[in-house]
Computed example of a mutant assay.
Amino acid sequence: MGNLKNVVIAFLVPLPSIAFYLSFLHHSHQENQSPSHAPPFHFLKWCSHHPLLLANLLFFFNVNVLFWVIGLIQSNHWLIDLYWTVIPVMLVHYYASHPMARSDVVRSTVVIVLTWVWSIRLTHNYFRREKWRWGAREDWRFNDMRKEYGKNWWWISFFAVYVSQQVFLVGICQPMFAVHSSEKPWNAWDFVATTICISGIVIAYFADTQLHSFVERNNMLKKIGVPSVPNLDKGVWRYSRHPNYFGEQLWWWGLVIFGWNVGQGWTFIGSLVNSMCLVYVTVLVERRMLKQENRAKEYKLYQKTTSVWIPWFKSIPRGEKGKVT
Score class of each variant (00 low, 15 high):
M1T: 14
N6T: 11
V7Y: 12
I9F: 10
A10N: 10
P14H: 07
P14G: 08
P14F: 09
I18D: 08
A19I: 15
A19Y: 12
Y21W: 15
S23M: 11
S23C: 14
F24E: 08
F24V: 08
L25V: 05
L25T: 06
H26P: 00
A38Y: 07
P39G: 09
L44C: 05
L44F: 13
W46P: 07
H50E: 04
L54G: 05
L58P: 04
F59E: 02
F60P: 01
F60V: 06
V63E: 02
V65D: 06
V65S: 08
F67G: 07
G71D: 07
I73T: 07
N76T: 05
D81V: 08
D81C: 09
V86W: 10
V86R: 06
I87W: 10
V89R: 05
V89A: 10
M90R: 00
Y95L: 06
A96C: 06
M100N: 05
D104S: 10
D104R: 09
V110C: 04
V111P: 04
V111W: 05
V113N: 04
W118K: 03
I120R: 00
T123F: 09
F127I: 05
R128W: 08
R129C: 08
E130G: 00
R133Y: 10
R133N: 13
E138L: 09
D139C: 11
W140A: 11
F142K: 02
N143K: 14
N143G: 15
D144A: 15
K147M: 10
W154G: 00
I156Q: 11
I156N: 02
P175D: 07
M176K: 01
F177H: 15
A178E: 03
A178Y: 01
E183I: 13
P185G: 08
P185Y: 05
N187I: 03
F191A: 14
A193M: 04
I196P: 03
S199Q: 04
S199M: 12
I203M: 14
F206E: 12
T209H: 12
Q210N: 14
H212W: 14
H212E: 07
F214W: 04
E216P: 02
R217V: 01
R217G: 01
N218T: 00
M220K: 14
L221G: 02
K222L: 10
K222G: 02
I224W: 00
P227T: 01
V229Y: 00
P230D: 01
W237C: 06
Y239S: 08
R241Q: 05
H242A: 04
P243Q: 08
N244S: 09
E248W: 03
E248Y: 01
W252P: 01
W253E: 01
W253F: 13
V256K: 00
I257K: 03
I257W: 00
I257F: 04
V262L: 03
Q264A: 13
Q264V: 02
T267M: 04
I269P: 04
S271A: 15
L272A: 12
V273W: 10
S275M: 14
L278D: 07
V281S: 11
T282D: 00
T282P: 01
V283C: 04
L284H: 03
L290T: 00
E293W: 07
E298C: 07
S307T: 06
I310N: 03
P311V: 03
W312G: 15
F313D: 13
F313Q: 12
E320S: 15
K321N: 15
K321L: 14
T325S: 14
